[in-house]
Amino acid sequence: MNQTTPKIGIVNYGAGNIFSLKAALDRLALPYGMINQAQDFDNFTHIIIPGVGHAGAAMQKLSDTGLLPAIKALTKPVLGICVGMQLITNYSEEGNSAMTGIIPLKTLRFNTQLSKKVPHIGWNNVEINPNNKLFAQIANETYFYFVHSYFIEFNTNFTIANCNYGNIFSAAIQKNNFYGVQFHPEKSGQAGEKLLLNFAHI
């Protein structure tokens, strides 16, 4: 448990709009800054990897920054959001792309036979592992806002919250200090804000 004031570093690799994430951190009065080079990681207590759009393209951009070795070596809490979460898995079907391999899971496309409508857009309830700090004081079956066409497979070792959309998938994952959420906490109302606060105090 980190008792000092949290300071969140956002990995800046050009993967889409982070205005809303910064706005949410502002509303929560959580200080943050951008990470552009490896030594910037030292300035922050917690790290967020944002991400929207194409996972393969995002992985390419992240690789191009040269930050990958530093990210993999991090021991402070890291949170990947949406495509940022997919980046910390092994592989994505989107563009048949290798990911960072931090958590040994696969990112797959929703099957329209099972899920009917793809993208999965909207508020879906998640079954939460009650002992996980990321979801402290967040009720089981709380709704979060999702918008994605690819999902991370369910896995009993790493899934800390699951969601059902035709098939059960990982709404949130964790391995050691690395966390990922498929939904957008910055757009998920009070529950999402609580999750960001929880992360900042891990």
Binding site: F19, S20, A23, A24, D26, R27, Y145, V147, H184, E186, K187, S188, G189, Q190, G192, E193
Partner: peptide, 11 residues
């Protein structure tokens, strides 16, 4: 758009 995004926590 910016003013809305700053204050609103839903999409």
């Amino acid at each position: 758009c910016k003013a809305v995004a700053r204050q609103i926590n839903i999409p």
